[in-house]
Simulated scan of single mutants.
Amino acid sequence: MWDGRSLRVMAEASFFFTNFPNDFQEKDLWRVFQHWGRVVDVFISRKLNARKKRFGFVKFHEVKDEYALEKQLDSIWIGTWKLQANKPKYRRQEKLLHIPRSPTLHRKVWKQKNQQCSYAQVVTGGKAGRVQKEEDVFLPHVRVNAETSFWLERCFIGKMLRASDVQKIKENFILGGFNSVRVRILGGMFVLLSSEEEGQIKRLIADNKEWFEGFFESIVPWDDPFAVSEKIVWFRCRGIPLALWSNQCFERIGALLGKLVEVDERTISKEVLEYARLSIRIPLAWR
């Protein structure tokens, strides 16, 4: 039984890092950082810091000791490069979860009665009463006046062939010298392509049609009524018997929620057997 004291929640922790090889990208640093914990995200800024060096941030999950992990990251060597890492200067205050004492529970004994009750009556204590209908459920509605977003007029909506290609698309734009092109995830298989230079994206699509067809199912100009109808979520499924550890099992699990998109590499290679990490496409119900 919990004694009512405050319990520190084991949460995610982010760290700032700099001084790493110039040819390293997010995926390269991900491989380095994963030796020190469960990596959630790695981000490298396009801008340089005050010392004209590249920098970025890495986020870990289930960190027990932030200070110990900070020292470990700050002692990493990548070839002749000594990585510099520390906790971000500005960070949110940690939240403490207060768990009150559990109240004494009294067991309720169900007794058979002569009168037959419906299932709804049983779960409400055996009393006959009005069953709540769908129209009784309160659904909040918010009315907002749409404002014209001029910056969206030069944007394009891209539907990707594979959700895992986002990083590749970003890298190709940078390697091609088109640093002004931004790729932002909208949800599901959709990304927003934008550029500060007017007409640049349209020219890129026309000059590199074959390349775009290798990554995108379609690319269309921004349309105000557009809304994402699905999202892709990574799930950790625990308790799967190893005898059932197969793509067929993963696909059927994905079908319970939506549709299986991708299986994590460490799940496929059986490097991690504590859980199966699955990417599942889930439909969003808009009314």
Results as ranks from 00 to 15, higher is better:
residue 148 T to P: 03
residue 1 M to I: 12
residue 227 A to Y: 09
residue 227 A to M: 03
residue 106 H to Y: 11
residue 129 G to V: 10
residue 187 G to K: 06
residue 36 W to G: 04
residue 147 E to V: 10
residue 34 Q to A: 03
residue 62 E to G: 01
residue 195 S to M: 13
residue 92 R to T: 07
residue 243 A to Y: 01
residue 258 G to P: 01
residue 168 K to Q: 15
residue 78 I to H: 03
residue 29 L to A: 15
residue 9 V to K: 03
residue 103 P to T: 04
residue 50 A to H: 06
residue 82 K to Y: 00
residue 125 G to E: 12
residue 256 L to D: 14
residue 157 I to G: 11
residue 179 N to S: 11
residue 146 A to R: 09
residue 53 K to E: 14
residue 180 S to D: 14
residue 243 A to F: 00
residue 274 E to L: 14
residue 51 R to F: 12
residue 66 E to K: 08
residue 264 D to I: 04
residue 130 R to T: 15
residue 123 V to W: 00
residue 139 L to C: 15
residue 133 K to I: 11
residue 70 E to F: 04
residue 239 G to Q: 04
residue 113 K to G: 14
residue 261 V to F: 00
residue 61 H to G: 09
residue 215 F to K: 01
residue 69 L to I: 00
residue 74 D to W: 00
residue 126 G to H: 04
residue 269 S to Q: 03
residue 90 Y to H: 12
residue 20 F to C: 15
residue 228 V to L: 08
residue 287 R to P: 08
residue 219 I to G: 06
residue 127 K to H: 15
residue 5 R to G: 09
residue 257 L to S: 14
residue 283 P to S: 05
residue 155 C to F: 08
residue 164 S to Q: 04
residue 120 A to C: 12
residue 33 F to V: 02
residue 250 F to H: 04
residue 37 G to T: 11
residue 69 L to S: 06
residue 57 F to Q: 11
residue 196 E to G: 03
residue 20 F to L: 12
residue 129 G to Q: 13
residue 167 Q to G: 15
residue 42 V to R: 01
residue 156 F to W: 08
residue 58 V to N: 08
residue 133 K to H: 13
residue 277 R to D: 10
residue 203 R to Y: 08
residue 259 K to Q: 14
residue 240 I to R: 00
residue 53 K to L: 13
residue 55 F to K: 10
residue 129 G to P: 02
residue 177 G to M: 00
residue 79 G to E: 09
residue 186 L to Y: 03
residue 42 V to N: 01
residue 14 S to Q: 08
residue 128 A to L: 11
residue 232 I to W: 09
residue 23 D to S: 12
residue 215 F to D: 07
residue 212 F to D: 07
residue 106 H to W: 10
residue 1 M to W: 08
